[in-house]
């Protein structure tokens, strides 16, 4: 399933929106990219019935920060990188990483 997410909202709001959609639709985000401004496009994959879905965490990747640093930090918390892309956050293009 492909779905649009409002890119004019905050990153926290987008995270809640995606986590809600995952639970409601029993699916898991596999890709998140910017679409036609200010829309972001989320691609979900259906999951088998009964399978628990770990919450998704969205984190902004600052320009002066290496993604490796973020990945290392999240790995210590047991979270793995799902995607790293430029998306719209508060209407502006922002590099964001997703962990689960």
């Amino acid at each position: 399933m492909n779905a649009q997410v409002d890119g004019n909202t905050t990153l926290t709001s987008q995270q809640s929106t995606i986590n809600y959609a995952e639970k409601a639709n029993n699916s898991q985000l596999v890709s998140y990219t910017k679409g036609t401004a200010p829309i972001n496009i989320a691609m979900f994959q259906d999951m088998p019935l009964g399978q628990d879905i770990t919450p998704l965490i969205l984190t902004e990747v600052p320009a002066d920060t290496s993604i490796d640093t973020l990945v290392e930090a999240q790995l210590k918390a047991g979270k793995h990188l799902v995607f790293q892309n430029e998306i719209f956050v508060n209407g502006a293009e922002t590099i964001v990483a997703g962990f689960r």
């Binding site: 492909n2 649009q4 709001s13 809640s16 995606i18 986590n19 809600y20 628990d52």
Partner: peptide, 21 residues
Amino acid sequence: ARIKLSPATQQEVDQITSIRS
């Protein structure tokens, strides 16, 4: 195919998570 996702609050996320669990 591109459904527009409705915004959800953290409280709603917690509720749907409980239901799915």
